[in-house]
Design a protein around this nucleic acid. Sequence first.
DNA 1: GGAGAAGAGTTGACGTGACAACTCTAGGAA
DNA 2: TTCCTAGAGTTGTCACGTCAACTCTTCTCC
Lengths: 168, 168
Amino acid sequence: MVEPDALKPEEWDLWDRWMHAQRLLLQEIDRRLQAEFGISKAEFSVLVTLLRAPGREVRVVDMADSLGWEKSRVSHQLTRMERRGFVVRTESGASGRRTGIGLTPDGRRLAERAVVAHAGNVRRYFIDQLAPEQAAAVSAWSDHMIERLEQQGERGSVGATGGSASRT
Amino acid sequence: MVEPDALKPEEWDLWDRWMHAQRLLLQEIDRRLQAEFGISKAEFSVLVTLLRAPGREVRVVDMADSLGWEKSRVSHQLTRMERRGFVVRTESGASGRRTGIGLTPDGRRLAERAVVAHAGNVRRYFIDQLAPEQAAAVSAWSDHMIERLEQQGERGSVGATGGSASRT
DNA sequence: GGAGAAGAGTTGACGTGACAACTCTAGGAA
DNA sequence: TTCCTAGAGTTGTCACGTCAACTCTTCTCC
């Protein structure tokens, strides 16, 4: 009954605690955005992406790539946000079909305020909670995991994710 | 224009990379369960919870508490899993109303196999990827975050979570 | 130029998750 | 006994996310 893959109790425990901590942190960051601005993390990500693309045209595919999302997810999200009045889909192609994405004035105002608050939350709940040697460990671990899993993702036929995943 | 809460570029970068790594890891663990057993992480959690409660009656409220879920979420999940034939809701109260939750033979078989595979995945993708000093840092950070956020959650009227959150 | 493949975007179905409203039971207190 | 409140569970609604199927360009090769 000895499994080669089995985990020792303290290993289970580490996994459990890490999962728990990580979940609490993400929940808290989300909860803050929701409480202060009434938007979800997904909405925030879209707003920030648009905010950071001042001149150039943003396409669904670009946004999907930069957020590491499926393009259908982007499309659904835009539909919901268009209903809420934060973004507009603009006709921009020569012959009239291409659709670009833009912020409404409301959306822009919201995005600008939310970015500032979000930075504060990231500082308060994440950056300021890391001792220097912990920060180093987290950094090294992150790089290692990204390299390992992204490589394998490319082999395994999972959506490429060129080198993106921006600020959320 | 200087924000007291603003983050330095390398701090943003650390946050981005941590988010990214963490997301890739969870996705991979999920993807494995899905590919090998056709179940989601949520389904897996329910199966394991039932597997670990051999004799005693499991109630919706207990499961919600032990997983850190809303009870409505448990109820919805049970409905879907009952449709798939993994669990049954049993009439157990004296006068006929209480409902307990149990595994079907299929559910039990699946749960037993999935637990073993999941342990292997956790070892492969998480435990074995941590250098000893990284493990120590992750452990300390997790404890710190849990303590900080759980405390605040209790003050802030968010769902208590007695001291639970089990093996997922 | 015309057929067809590749790329961009949308849509529908469905599982997931949070929140609020609801039903039903049990346990007290008047 | 009657009321009524707390606890357990379910249900509806809606936002979120994935997958697959679809439309409509646009590019390319003949």
